[in-house]
Each structure stands twice: as C-alpha cells, then as structure tokens.
C-alpha cells in the first residue's frame, strides 16, 4: 500500500493504483488547467490525449501511465 503526497496531502492507495486514479481518490480528479483556464481530467486513459499530465517528483509525466509508488510527490497544475 504505497503512500504518496498529492498536492502536499498524504494519500494511501492500493498496490498497482495509477496516478490518474489517485487524482480522483485524493482530490477532484483533475490533472491540469488548459490554456484558456478550464480544469481538465484524464480522458483517454491510455497515454494518447495528454490531458492527465502532472508533475511527479518534479518531472512531467502522464498520470494514466504511471503507477503510484511510496514517497512519490504528485503535483497537479493549478
């Protein structure tokens, strides 16, 4: 059961949980804000649309193709 930090708040999730799922488990499910200011959440679930991009340990990654790991720091884009 990894515990990660989602926007600074601790969140414990089941093994094998994707970061995309963690966004909904520990927040409002959104990953980023679009160029015109709309909040966006994962769309395709499979690495195509790039709507789920977040910062993970300081590196931009796709939430839907990344598994939660203990100690991971995930920042959504306000």
């Amino acid at each position: 059961m990894p515990e990660l930090l989602l926007d600074g708040r601790p969140l414990r999730v089941a093994d094998g949980t994707s970061v995309a799922a963690a966004l909904a488990l520990g927040g409002d499910g959104c990953a980023r804000t679009s160029v015109s200011g709309q909040r966006r959440a994962p769309l395709c679930g499979m690495g195509i649309c790039q709507e789920c991009r977040v910062s993970i340990d300081g590196v931009r990654r796709l939430a839907c193709q990344t598994l939660c790991r203990d100690g991971m720091r995930v920042e959504t884009r306000p």
């Binding site: 999730v13 089941a14 094998g16 949980t17 994707s18 995309a20 799922a21 963690a22 909904a24 488990l25 409002d28 499910g29 959104c30 679009s34 709309q38 909040r39 966006r40 959440a41 994962p42 769309l43 395709c44 679930g45 499979m46 839907c64």
Partner: peptide, 21 residues
C-alpha cells in the same frame, strides 16, 4: 466534452482498471 467527468468509453474502462473509483 472537455468537462471533467467526460472520458473515452475504453478510456473509462482503462481508468477503472487502474483504480479509479
């Protein structure tokens, strides 16, 4: 279609398998 809550159909399935509640 850009509202949070809208996903692909296979997309939703994939997200659920990854733990989306």
């Amino acid at each position: 279609w850009t509202l949070p809550g809208v996903t692909g159909a296979g997309g939703l399935q994939a997200l659920i398998k990854g733990g989306l509640p």
